[in-house]
């Protein structure tokens, strides 16, 4: 029972991190129709920038804010210069975003070196709680709380604001949104930047969890995020949330009991859902 509770918390914390990547990726795919492979590199840069700023200021909140701002800025630049010319051209999107991933991963190596940089958790959440012999990491609880707050924030944005209204309408028909007098390109840029900021936040929060930042850490999380959005349903925010929890728990439990099966189990889960419900658990119509 103790192990079950510990793995449950680990799985939810892992799910929260995956959710930060998958939510942005899913909305970008749903609204913009963009297959985006830059999320891994935004995750890496979020990690590097947070460590860099933390080393200079000693402030964890400032480091997180800087990482999020860097991610949003990179997202804006990516969208304006590289993505906007290839809306509607999926092949070009894949090639360009993969290329950006390679270039910006190497730039991170150039700036911060090829070797992993050690990272520590902020002192105020570096400890553990022991409740009835169950050891609970404070930082993992913090990750779960952040994940829940971000989910609540996105849910509010999507369902309670005019921005969200335009996003929901834009997923169905960006053309009709324009025909109602709304400049959808501004929303496209904002959504891309928001998704990029979430990926960078994920990277910034991941680094203290694993204790270091390195340039290869983005790819695994990006693959997990893609599995989540296919599992949950492309373009669905709820799908991303539920899919992240499922994948987070699966990874936590399987890697505890039989680590070699972890990857196979997630892929098997994906195949199972795609066979029974090809549009994913909360599938929506996705352009292209």
């Amino acid at each position: 029972m103790h192990i079950f509770l510990m793995l449950l918390i680990n799985g939810l914390a892992e799910g929260a991190l995956i959710f930060l990547m998958a939510a942005g990726l899913s909305i970008i795919l749903g609204l913009l129709g963009v297959v985006n492979f830059t999320h891994g590199v935004l995750f890496i840069w979020g990690g590097y920038v947070s460590i860099w700023i933390f080393s200079m200021t000693g402030s964890f909140p400032i480091a997180i804010i800087a990482a999020v701002a860097a991610g949003a800025l990179m997202g804006l630049v990516f969208e304006r210069l590289f993505i906007r010319p290839v809306y509607g051209n999926v092949t070009a999107q894949i090639l360009i975003t993969l290329g950006l991933g390679v270039v910006f991963t190497d730039m991170a190596r150039l700036f911060w070196g090829p070797n992993p940089i050690p990272a520590s958790r902020p002192e105020f959440m570096d400890g553990t709680w022991v409740i009835d012999a169950v050891i609970i990491s404070q930082y993992r609880i913090f990750l779960i709380v952040v994940g829940i707050l971000v989910a609540i924030g996105i849910n509010y944005l999507v369902n309670r604001t005019k921005v969200g209204m335009v996003m929901r309408a834009g997923i169905q028909s960006p053309e009709m949104v324009q025909a109602l007098g709304i400049n959808i390109k501004v929303y496209f840029a904002g959504v891309f930047a928001g998704g990029a900021a979430l990926a960078a936040l994920g990277g910034a929060l991941y680094v203290p969890l694993v204790g270091s930042v390195w340039s290869g850490m983005g790819i695994n999380n990006q693959i997990l995020a893609f599995i989540v959005i296919i599992l949950g349903g492309m373009g669905s925010f709820y799908g991303s949330a539920v899919g992240s929890i499922i994948i987070g728990l699966t990874v936590a439990f399987v890697s505890w009991f039989y680590p070699p099966l972890t990857v196979y189990t997630t892929v098997l889960l994906l195949l199972l859902v795609l066979t029974l419900k090809p549009e994913g658990l909360f599938g929506m119509a996705v352009r292209n």
Binding site: A169, S173, M176, Q178, A179, L180, G181, N183
Partner: peptide
């Protein structure tokens, strides 16, 4: 298009252009 429409053109497309994921109220608000 968004600028053209703001010059004072209302458009009722052939397929109605209604957003299914929005309520009637939201379809008017947008």
């Amino acid at each position: 298009p968004y600028h053209t429409v703001r010059q004072g053109i209302g458009f009722v497309p052939e397929d109605y252009g209604i957003f299914d994921a929005l309520t009637v109220e939201e379809n008017l608000l947008i």
